[in-house]
């Protein structure tokens, strides 16, 4: 049995074998594997007795349930109005230059994926970004680079 199958079974045992558990199971897979592979979605469908298309249908609706491979660390920069006003363009550019990728792409070594997302709920402390689940506020280009350097050392 593959690692993904085991993970899915464990999550289904924890959350229960019902449709209502689908979000929690998918979130659990993303937490571990950073995205939902075809194999993962088929495994979830099998365990919850749904069609794989149904699982993909739910997954593809949600920004945080990625269905394409992502890096070990996912950087999400808020692009909504106040963060925009406070300089998210400069922060994004600095990280693009640092990681040598554009927004939406993943580095060759699969360490980082750089994304822009809608409002993260820190409009009073913009610009802001999430790295995985951690939040970093009141960014400057320099501060953002330092945060990401910290992650590349981990």
């Amino acid at each position: 049995m593959s690692k993904t199958d085991q993970l899915v079974q464990k999550l289904v045992r924890k959350h229960g074998k019902t449709r209502n558990s689908l979000m929690a199971v998918l979130q659990g897979v993303v937490q571990e594997e950073r995205y939902l592979s075809e194999d993962a979605m088929i495994a979830v469908a099998r365990e919850l007795d749904l069609s794989a298309a149904d699982v993909y249908g739910t997954a593809s609706f949600y920004t945080f349930l990625d269905t394409i491979p992502r890096g070990k660390n996912i950087i999400r920069i808020c692009k909504t109005i106040t963060c925009h006003m406070k300089g998210k363009d400069e922060v994004l550019l600095a990280l693009e230059n640092m990681l040598k990728i554009k927004a939406g792409e993943t580095t060759h070594d699969k360490m980082f994926t750089l994304l822009t997302v809608n409002c993260l709920g820190w409009c009073h402390k913009g610009p802001v970004m999430l790295v995985n689940d951690e939040v970093y506020t009141e960014l400057t280009p320099q501060k953002a680079i330092e945060v990401i350097e910290e992650y590349s050392r981990k």
Partner: peptide, 18 residues
């Protein structure tokens, strides 16, 4: 999991139901 519209109450129920 990152969807503004789920703040709408009936969309929120749909999301909770998978």
């Amino acid at each position: 999991s990152g969807a503004y519209v789920c703040g709408e109450e009936s969309a929120l129920f749909e999301s909770m139901e998978g």
